[in-house]
Structure formats: structure tokens, C-alpha cells
Design a protein around this nucleic acid. Structure first.
Lengths: 141, 141
DNA sequence: CATGTGTACTAGTATTCATAGTACACATAT
DNA sequence: ATATGTGTACTATGAATACTAGTACACATG
């Protein structure tokens, strides 16, 4: 029973997809700062992957500041760290450009791209709202 | 003397970056259908890479329908092929989402993302306009 | 014929990814 | 003190990918 969902697809490495799934769960509010995060042994069991692969996922997310660990205790979701201006401009300069190049290659329109961006933005915000209702239910257990 | 520019950065494979640079040159109009594309030997010389790596770039672009080759003659830029609905929805569903997730992780705003998308969109269109003027200059040589 | 083109190989090295297994230190519950 | 669960660090292996080097052949053109 993991607090995030992941559908494995071909073309991307397992650990990349897992890192992304957790990032998504965090930015959407499905996972909140202070929440307990499953141990690498639980991750590897549930996902049927090697513990070292699970550990690699956690290490990457720790490096990004999304998770924090206490040796012997476990892992929990951290507060979203302040992003560096460098990272931000890299996304706006490079990743956004790559999306646009790809969109133009597929003959999509600017409007379609912007609409998709907005839809995803709103979709993640809706999850955030739902997530705040669900923790209340869990608190009653 | 290549008809596209590429700045190699770490983190991505050489051939990926080259494929992207050519995609960008094509969608921006810097390279037009029918234009001659450099041979793999020229690519490897200019870029100081192995000819097999250059060939891999060309093969990938041919697979995408952006280039077409005539054995013994050479390679030229193809007409932008009709993109499959599958590719399109994949970009709008997955790549756009990934950009949004990353943007939210970096605490960027929807407005900033959409502004960046539009800027890049416009930036590529401006290149297209300039490219149409430059061929005229080259014609006079 | 000489030159330039794409293409297909073989072979090698380095890196990444994922796995398997082991073991230790730390923390908590019984 | 013991049992259980935690993170962490290793070694080793194999597969896949990336990139290089070199060679050779067929095709096209001057």
C-alpha cells in the first residue's frame, strides 16, 4: 500500500519513473511535508524491485530535498525546498523549449500546448484539494 | 560549416543533443524541406565525433521522417510528416505533465511556465522569418 | 577513375541500470 | 537482552546504452 501511484512504461528507467511519481505526488499535495514515506524494503516489496533500486530512488529524492531520512528510523516527506534560480531558469530555458520544439514537430498549436499545461496544472491542484480531505479520514482510523 | 547550431551540455548523450538541434532547426524554418543536409562524414568532422555516432543521429531523424536519404547521393530535409495522434496525445499527456510537475517542484507559477512556452514559440517563429530572408542572400553568392 | 555518398559490419571501452546478496549501525518495541 | 525494522554501504554480475575505431561495399557523380 503505497502513498503514490506509478504506471511503469517502457523507454524510461524504473528509478526515473519512480522518482517522477513521487515528485508528482508531492507537488500535488498527495504527500505532505511530515508524512511518513515507505522504507526501501517496503518499496521494493510492493513494487517488486530490488532494494538497491528503491534506495537509489530515495537517494535521488533526498538529493532534491523532497525527502529526508533518519538512519534507523525511516524516511519522511520534507518541506519543499527553495529552488535555485539556476534550476528555474534551466527549466524555463531548456525544458520548456524542448516541449515547444517537440510540439511544433508534431504540428500542435501553441493554444493546444498552453491548454495542456493549464489542464495539468489544474489537475494537480485538484489532487491537492482532495488530498487535504483524505488525511482527515485517515486520522479517524 | 553546419546549417544548425548545437551547444553540447553534460547530462545528455551527444546524439540526443544533435537530434534535438536538428529538430529545432527544422521546426524553426532554419532548415527547409529540400535543403541538403551534411553527410555523416562532414558531421563527424565538423563536430569531432565518430562517423557511426553521426550516422545514428541521421538514422533517428530519418525514422522521425525529418530527413530522407538517397544512398550514394546524400541526405536532405524532408517535408514535416503528419504526426500520429498517438504521438500528439503522448506529448500533451506526458511531456506537458512532466514540465508542469517540474515547474511546481521549483515553485514556478503557471504564468511563468506559459510565458516561457510562448516566448520559445515566438522565438522559433522569428527564426523562421529570418531564415526566409537569409536564403535570399545566399542565392546571390 | 577519383571522389563523395550512405550503410553495415566487427570490436572495444565506458557508463548506466537493475539485480542479488551481505553486513553493519541505528532505532524502537517487547 | 532480544526481535524487528530502519538506512546505508559494499561487492559482484549481467544487460543495455553510448561512443569510438576501423573496414568495406554499393551507389552516385564529376
Amino acid at each position: 500500500m503505497l502513498p503514490f501511484t506509478v504506471e511503469f512504461r517502457t523507454g524510461l528507467s524504473l528509478y526515473q519513473q519512480l522518482v517522477y511519481a513521487v515528485q508528482k505526488a508531492i507537488v500535488s499535495g498527495q504527500l505532505l511535508p511530515g508524512d511518513r514515506f515507505p522504507s526501501v524494503r517496503k518499496l521494493s516489496q510492493e513494487l517488486r524491485i530490488n532494494p538497491n533500486t528503491a534506495q537509489k530512488v530515495v537517494t535521488r529524492l533526498v538529493d532534491q530535498g523532497l525527502l529526508e531520512v533518519k538512519p534507523g528510523v525511516g524516511t519522511m516527506v520534507a518541506r519543499l525546498p527553495e529552488a535555485s534560480p539556476r534550476e528555474r531558469s534551466a527549466l524555463l530555458d531548456h525544458e520548456a523549449e524542448a516541449l515547444v520544439v517537440e510540439a511544433r514537430r508534431l504540428s500542435l498549436t501553441l493554444g493546444q500546448v498552453q491548454q495542456a499545461v493549464q489542464d495539468h496544472w489544474n489537475g494537480l491542484s485538484e489532487v491537492s484539494v482532495n488530498a487535504r480531505e483524505n488525511p482527515g479520514k485517515e486520522g479517524s482510523k
